[in-house]
């Protein structure tokens, strides 16, 4: 347990009277990629959004149980959601750059958190974030153009750059490639592999190949329950549970 970054214990989520997650317990290690897989509506995105308290935005959503990030309880009234979210970046399913310039998109986080004192520092953070997201070379001449003018894959990398500009420890990715073509997907997958050295990454995906390619751990969700979790190799070659077996061989879902 020494290097577990996120420790979930008995997490239940209700949307109104409908229960979406049933007692999820999970242990996520530092600087690894964990993939959450499962059929649509199985609760994997819901679980992901518990980790940075994004479910707070949904009025009818009630979360109970315990999630600890760095041994600190985050499912509590007292949690400082703002600082939690600056520690946990998130990349969404559809690229959602702000209708601002490329530069301002990345500069947004560092500015509101007061991470920089001078214009030069800000420029440096923006450039290094874009470099880490593998986008810098493509956009360095047009940092003042609107972020929405980029292609889908570039927009998604811009969103990744925006997320890492505030120097988070964890990055949550909610089906980051589902709106992208195979080439853009391959670029993002490569990027995820690089980012693993510095960040703990949790990725929700519908593509089992993608989970197999980018992740070290895989968790299989089904109907709101965590069916099986383990090394990605093992899940994809020799799962313990027959439901997992059926899902990854394409018998349902």
């Amino acid at each position: 347990m020494s290097n577990s970054k996120i420790l979930a214990n008995g997490v239940d989520v209700y949307y109104g009277s409908k229960q979406a997650l049933f007692g999820i317990s999970m242990d996520i290690k530092e600087k690894e990629v964990t993939a959450l897989i499962g059929p649509s509506g199985c609760g994997k995105s819901t679980f992901l959004r518990c980790i940075n308290r994004m479910n707070d935005l949904i009025e009818i959503c009630k979360v109970s149980g315990s999630i600890k990030v760095d041994n600190e309880e985050i499912i509590s009234e007292k949690t400082d959601v703002v600082s939690l979210r600056s520690k946990i970046g998130m990349v969404f399913q559809k690229p959602n750059p702000f209708p601002k310039s490329i530069f301002d998109n990345v500069a947004y986080g560092p500015t509101i958190h007061g991470l920089v004192d001078s214009k030069n520092d800000l420029e440096e953070i923006v450039h290094s974030s874009l470099k880490k997201a593998g986008l810098f070379d493509e956009v360095k001449d047009r940092l003042n153009e609107p972020g929405t003018s980029l292609s889908g894959g570039q927009q998604q990398r811009l969103c990744i750059a925006r997320a890492i500009a505030v120097n988070p420890e964890i990055i949550l990715m909610d089906e980051p490639c589902s709106a992208l073509d195979p080439i853009a997907t391959a670029i993002i997958e490569e990027l995820i592999d690089d980012l693993r050295l510095n960040y703990t990454i949790i990725i929700v995906t519908h593509s089992m190949q993608q989970a197999a390619r980018v992740s070290q751990k895989t968790c299989f969700f089904h109907l709101g329950e965590l069916i099986e979790t383990g090394e990605t190799n093992k899940i994809f070659t020799n799962p313990d549970n027959t439901k997992t077996q059926d899902y990854i061989t394409g018998r349902f879902g």
Binding site: N52, V82, R85, M90, F92, N96, P97, F98, P99, R162
Partner: peptide, 18 residues
């Protein structure tokens, strides 16, 4: 204004006013 923009901003750790 799309909800995704709100989520993006809040996800970076901006508060509501920002």
């Amino acid at each position: 204004v799309p909800q995704s923009l709100r989520e993006a901003s809040l996800g970076i750790g901006a508060n509501k006013a920002e």
